[in-house]
């Protein structure tokens, strides 16, 4: 590597964001962590400084404050080489479905905010002629299920947005990658009992992201291959069968 490449991690205080930042920093990239909780991002930046020898920059960003996105993007002298969006909010299906305000926060945190922000950086990357955008979406977005369809709908929207962005930028040198991690052992899922073989560690997701970035192959990927047949089956189930299942 001649000059250090740069990566911006949105949702830098999330477990996946932290693990991703550590991998990039370990490979000598210049890392910027963006998050709502500056103190938490700073704590992670200190950690990465000890582990990798390089302290990431920390910038404040709330994905719900879409009105500030233009200024946020303009504050970068040049768009980063790679942007990873790990921001997200699981929400609480039971509460979301009876409280529109809460549901709106889940929808906006997982779809509106991430999509608009990546969209705002995309034009700068396209103008420059290169860049990688990694959006962390979810298997939950592949088919709406009773147990988490507010979150799932937001992720479905985000996946569709990334797919369109990929299509639109592929000839302008910008590579858009959708990562669907499946279950991941993080703060977000701490209260859930997760099936062992289907659950990835944050570091595993981070490795998959870095590898996909290096390969620069536009597309969508599962972190653990086992999710491909599972989600194919879930998508293909005829509606009458699907409706009788508890998922």
């Amino acid at each position: 590597m001649t000059t250090a490449s740069s990566v911006l991690i949105i949702g830098g205080a999330s477990d996946i964001g932290r693990a991703t930042a550590l991998i990039y920093a370990g490979h000598g990239w210049k890392v910027t962590l963006a998050g709502r909780n500056l103190a938490e991002c700073g704590r992670i930046a200190d950690d990465i400084a000890v582990r990798s020898g390089q302290r990431p920059d920390v910038v404040e960003l709330d994905v719900l404050r879409t009105d500030r996105f233009t200024a946020f993007v303009e504050a970068f002298p040049e768009a980063p080489d790679t942007i990873v969006c790990a921001a997200g909010l699981l929400g609480d299906q039971a509460r979301d479905q009876c409280d529109p305000n809460r549901a709106a926060v889940t929808l906006r945190s997982n779809f509106e905010g991430p999509a608009l922000l990546l969209g705002a950086f995309a034009s700068a990357m396209a103008a420059r002629g290169h860049g990688v955008i990694v959006g962390i979406s979810s298997v939950a977005g592949e088919r709406g299920r009773a147990s988490n369809y507010v979150y799932g709908a937001a992720k479905a929207g985000f996946s569709a947005f990334l797919s369109g962005l990929r299509h639109s930028l592929v000839r302008q040198g910008v590579c858009v990658i959708t990562v669907k991690p499946g279950f991941v052992r993080t703060k977000m899922t701490a209260q859930m009992t997760l099936p062992r073989g289907l659950t990835a560690e944050p570091a595993e997701v981070a490795r998959a992201i870095f590898k996909a970035d290096q390969a620069k192959r536009p597309g969508s990927l599962y972190v653990r291959p086992v999710w491909r047949p599972i989600m194919t089956i879930i998508r293909m189930l005829p509606e009458p069968v699907f409706l009788r299942m508890r998922l």
Partner: peptide, 18 residues
């Protein structure tokens, strides 16, 4: 286990805070 951040390393004196 979730308090797993390294805080600082003083490479002159070998003092590690975690």
């Amino acid at each position: 286990r979730a308090l797993d951040r390294m805080r600082a390393f003083d490479s002159v004196n070998g003092l590690l805070t975690v």
